[in-house]
Design a protein around this nucleic acid. Structure first.
Lengths: 159, 159
DNA sequence: TCCCTAGCGAAACAAACTTGCATTTGGGAG
DNA sequence: CTCCCAAATGCAAGTTTGTTTCGCTAGGGA
């Protein structure tokens, strides 16, 4: 639960820039980089975590190293866009582990999915489960990633 | 530089499952969860970082909290697919901070981009810079995200 | 059988995080 | 203009966590 409109100053932004690159950086080093004491840095981080500016702290795993070398994009178009069916789709996609990311979009498609699988057989099985067994998917277009050129959740920061 | 073929056992996978959800979890707690001592956990984490299984440790920032509330997908189709021009495109996309993710794909498009911007004006300016000023973009299709249903870099783990 | 490597746990150690407290700073209200 | 309050800081403990050391225990070859 984000608390309130958090207003970030240049210290906060500088701290975020460091943390979204490497959140194991000691507060002491962050402090030196932004000209603040370690406790001050720590209090700001804590506040940003509580207000939801920092949504999480995670290790990034190389998919290929854990047997999921294939990344696939799917544009999904639904038959019906009734709110109830949209929500059902959101829930199903969210609950599927292979669906790494899911966005509800405007334009010629309704959803865009980023999927991680071990091989094309696994993808084929997944399409059956997600799209053919659903009675609400009109069509879907598949793009297989040949190169994950740039991957991350890094956000451009002002300043 | 990934060292060598790292073979992960069930301990490693259990540790990864925890870290990709919250990498601030103390090693002591991880140890309790997987039935290992804290030093053993720490050695395994270190090894996976050195071999590239763990690609990074990052804080996830809420884009809306830092003035980048709009997420946009772009399918980019190039005029020419000469290797040299592909590489040039990869470099330009990678070097653009607003391009959060960039994938080189098969199918009806050559690239898929995920872009983060403050408003549609910023997106319009970015399209000019990335697509119109480039002489190698045949066309591009834009999808604006209305809902970031599921966002992350979480990978499904075997076991 | 012997040795050798890899991995473990317990404990000692070092580093980082966290908290309490006094101080400073920047605004309003009187 | 002065006073007072709220917010944020730095410093210095105190606590937790991370890291290293060490001796031990398998598990494989030679």
């Amino acid at each position: 639960m984000p608390a309130l409109p958090p207003s970030l100053d240049s210290f906060d932004l500088a701290i975020l820039a460091i943390l979204q690159r490497d959140n194991t950086t000691p507060q002491r080093l962050i402090g030196e980089a932004v000209n603040l004491s370690a406790p001050a840095v720590q209090r700001r981080i804590k506040r940003m975590e509580q207000t939801g500016v920092i949504a999480g702290n995670v290790a990034v795993i190389e998919p290929a190293a854990v047997g999921q070398p294939i990344t696939i994009f799917v544009e999904v178009e639904l038959e019906s866009e009734r709110a109830e069916l949209i929500d059902a789709a959101k829930r199903q996609f969210s609950g599927t582990p292979e669906v790494q990311q899911c966005y509800y979009v405007t334009g010629e498609a309704d959803f865009i999915l980023i999927i991680t699988v071990a091989d094309m057989g696994a993808y084929e099985a997944l399409t059956r489960k997600l799209f053919f067994d659903s009675n609400n998917v009109r069509k879907f277009r598949t793009f297989v990633a040949m190169d994950r050129v740039k991957v991350g959740l890094t956000v451009p920061l002002p300043g």
